[in-house]
Nucleic acid binder design. Structure first.
Length: 212
DNA sequence: CGACCGATTGACT
DNA sequence: GTCAATCGGTCGG
């Protein structure tokens, strides 16, 4: 298991979106929890894509999308939710992958607490099966926007020694690439028909996907 | 400025 | 199935 290097993200956005499936997200929160979860659903947003925040050019909000690959892009939406993206493509070329669903692995109790409003119980399968839900479960906000998820150049060798000290607070662990027949390709969610593309990817049969 | 609206979710008919 | 919540980003005047 090693931390995904910057070259993983420095590729065509659709390729990264597909290959993110099955990878493990690790997030060390400031409250001391180390959350882990498997990526089970993604969507690609390209630079010449009318549905992308980056389509009309660089602004203060979408600036991370134009920055180096391997950083987070987290934005606030609908006045109450956040969405987590990973920046792709070389610096200067906008691209990002929206993380739409995760399969919870560790610190599930805390995820439940973060998702609980009032005294209602939250079902295991309703913790991270949506882009807004998963940010709520892990406690991700704009405070985690534009975070580097890779080792800085020169310190990458640490991971080859199995040393994760100094690892980015939010990073991904490698996992075997899924076979094509394990991946379902579908249209993106919440996108106008005229801008629609088959750029949503999810793991076939996985119970934690937001919509089938 | 004011107005519109969104890569969503949960409550309710 | 429908719809309100809630607010920052963006754009037109």
């Amino acid at each position: 298991m090693h931390i995904l290097p910057r070259r993983f993200y420095n590729r065509p956005t659709i390729t990264v979106a597909r290959e993110l499936l099955g990878k493990t997200l690790v997030y060390q929160s400031s409250s001391g929890n180390e959350f882990t979860a498997k990526i089970v659903e993604t969507e690609a947003y390209l630079d010449d894509d009318p549905a992308s925040h980056a389509f009309k050019g660089k602004t203060p909000r979408n600036a991370p999308m134009f920055g180096p690959p391997g950083f987070t892009y987290i934005y606030f939406i609908y006045g109450m939710y956040h969405c987590l993206n990973f920046v792709t493509e070389k610096e200067g070329k906008a691209g990002a992958v929206l993380i739409r669903a995760l399969e919870p692995l560790e610190v599930i109790d805390q995820m439940k607490k973060n998702r609980t409003k009032g005294s209602k119980k939250v079902d295991m399968h309703n913790l991270t099966n949506g882009p807004g839900k998963l940010c709520q479960a892990l406690g991700l906000t704009k405070a985690q926007n534009n975070l580097d998820m890779c080792f800085e150049e020169g310190t990458e060798g640490l991971r080859d020694l199995g040393i994760e000290k100094g690892a980015p607070k939010l990073h991904l662990l490698d996992a075997p690439k899924l076979h094509p027949e394990e991946i379902i390709v579908a249209t993106r969610i919440g996108i106008r028909e005229e801008h629609q593309q088959h750029w949503r990817f999810y793991i076939k049969g996985n119970r934690f996907v937001s919509k089938v």
